[in-house]
Design a protein around this nucleic acid. Structure first.
Lengths: 339, 339
DNA sequence: CTGAAAGCGCTTACAG
DNA sequence: CTGAAAGCGCTTACAG
């Protein structure tokens, strides 16, 4: 293996000088620097990250903690963040938590990341106290996408507003019996966003004088399949809703499919609103509350890089705007004046 | 920071013994091992991966090289592979290549990975000679999903068969003017699979005595948007096809959408077949050539772990089966007997 | 501007 | 079964 020693020998300098020259540090003459660079190139030298970390104290790596890259929101955020992190010299270490929250302690993520990464990016989960402690123990700054944690930088949408916006749209159309598809209610591992959107859903219904019906709040696990199962559950139970607010487009699309299979016409017999404006929402003609996903990844990466450069700045809590996009899956209920 | 020295002191042993005990190596008395484990736990000790790598020669990390995690196939493979790699003690280092092949040399990936990872997983790209050289220089075994490279382990489908299968289905329905949506033809960075599927498409048409029409082969970039643009191009040029074979479901769904926007009825006026059996293919009622994506990720991870354990085994080249799933986007052409 | 040297925190023969 | 010591390949004060 080619080491810094080989480069030093070839360039006729000490290893200290090689290190300085390669890092572009001052106090190296231009002539020497060129000689070192040439030697390193000829030998195809690549510094050992392990050795550099051990000696220098920096890992040049960012840990990404997410429920699963196998999901549109997370994949998009991770991808966009990596596009900034990589050019800045940082590696991206993926740490997917299991889909099943009980499968293994999520706090475990903190230990795996310790002494490995310089900063952590948390995507799509609302960390609980023990997880916050574990991730804090990692040592570097933590940035969260999709939730707000005191003391950490964050980028997110206003989930309460998202829920209210979706439900208001349905109420305006004349719906009164509106279901909510999110994640398991306030479980120990409720995914990011669901709690806030559920709260917005409840607030808006309550404000309209509509009583909440627990049977109308079901678990969709934030996947297409989960959305299908949720719709199945809604159709199996009592009187069906005339409208559904799903906390993600993936769940919304699953719900639409199952409803159609059951013979319901969308939107005549059932209106459906999602959240995200997923790549395929337009193809699906899905009404949704759009959020800027790619931008949130970029903003998170910028926050990370800035805090790494200036550790003492206050971590900002950014909120990005959302907007309702009305497409073909929502309409007044069948029996209404306009129906 | 807690180091191995602190644990040694607390347990009343040398650091060598701590290292052995923590790694479960033999030649440590049970009593000593327990004492060390207890001390490590009390101190919340986590070994420094950098120091361990430097001293031990192993990085305990796998590099994943893929075009972009922001794509269903890649995200699913990466996710499933990680589910085996992580429990085996390996970190997953994500290295997404830019979408734009000219953006930066893909061979660069090799250098970034050198001295960082113990093995490489290549997903969704067909490495070119210089890339093969660069990734070989990484030192560890390389495993490829979606292509076959001599000397490397691989898991893939038979892309030629995929193309022939899709086209045969369309021919059987009576179509004669069939378009192909894939990636840029034989460009310097043609994504995995497209070349093979294109070849299968051409072979099957030729075997049926149908002349190839270059105007019917368009670029869809393996994204929803790309599929939309490809369909736009097909509709803008000469006489439109009566059927389209798209090399991925994402492109197929984009194509279906644009065709519908243009007033075509699917499948009456245009049949469309995709590849993958994407999560949403069923919702879209899309006819497709299904491939086991999750399994390919799992198999790849198994191949990696096995080769890491037994470096001298021959790297297998696995081929997994595909199957045509006929749904609602294909039918005989409008003017046919059955139409 | 440059070099010698200490030290980062481990693993692993080598002795005992 | 256990420990002392060398060494992995760098970075970074400290001298000069």
């Amino acid at each position: 293996m080619t080491t810094i020693r080989d480069v030093a020998r070839r360039a006729g300098v000490s290893i200290a000088t090689v290190s300085r020259a390669l890092h572009g540090l001052p106090r190296v003459s231009e002539a020497t620097r060129q000689r070192v660079l040439a030697a390193a190139a000829e030998l195809h030298y690549v510094a050992s990250p392990s050795a550099a970390s051990l000696a220098g104290g920096q890992n040049m790596a960012i840990g990404v903690v997410a429920p699963s890259v196998n999901g549109w929101f997370v994949a998009t955020v991770v991808h966009s963040a990596e596009r900034l992190l990589r050019p800045a010299g940082y590696d991206v270490l993926l740490y997917s938590l299991g889909v099943d929250p009980h499968e293994r302690s999520r706090a475990f993520a903190g230990n795996v990341l310790r002494k490995r990464v310089d900063a952590v990016l948390v995507v799509g989960i609302r960390p609980e106290p023990d997880e916050i402690a574990a991730l804090s123990a990692v040592g570097g700054p933590v940035t969260v996408v999709g939730a707000e944690v005191p003391g950490w930088a964050s980028v997110r949408v206003d989930d309460g507003a998202v829920g209210r916006c979706a439900v208001r749209h349905l109420l305006d159309l004349g719906h009164r019996r509106i279901a909510y598809i999110g994640s398991e209610p306030e479980g120990p591992a409720e995914p990011v966003a669901s709690a806030g959107r559920r709260a917005g859903y409840r607030d808006e219904l309550t404000a309209a004088g509509i009583a909440l019906d627990p049977a109308l709040e079901v678990d969709g696990g934030f996947t297409v399949r989960g959305g299908m199962e949720a719709m199945d559950a809604l159709l199996a139970a009592g009187p069906p809703p005339t409208a559904v607010f799903a906390s993600s487009d993936e769940m919304a699309m699953g719900a639409v499919h199952v409803a159609r299979q059951a013979g319901l016409r969308i939107p005549r017999d059932l209106s459906v609103v999602g959240v995200d404006d997923h790549d395929m929402a337009e193809l699906f003609d899905l009404t949704t509350v759009a959020q800027p996903v790619y931008s949130q990844g970029v903003m998170a990466a910028e926050l990370i890089l800035r805090r790494l450069a200036e550790p003492h700045r206050d971590p900002p809590a950014l909120v990005v705007p959302t907007s309702l996009i009305v497409r073909g899956t929502t309409a007044p209920p069948a029996g209404s004046d306009t129906g």
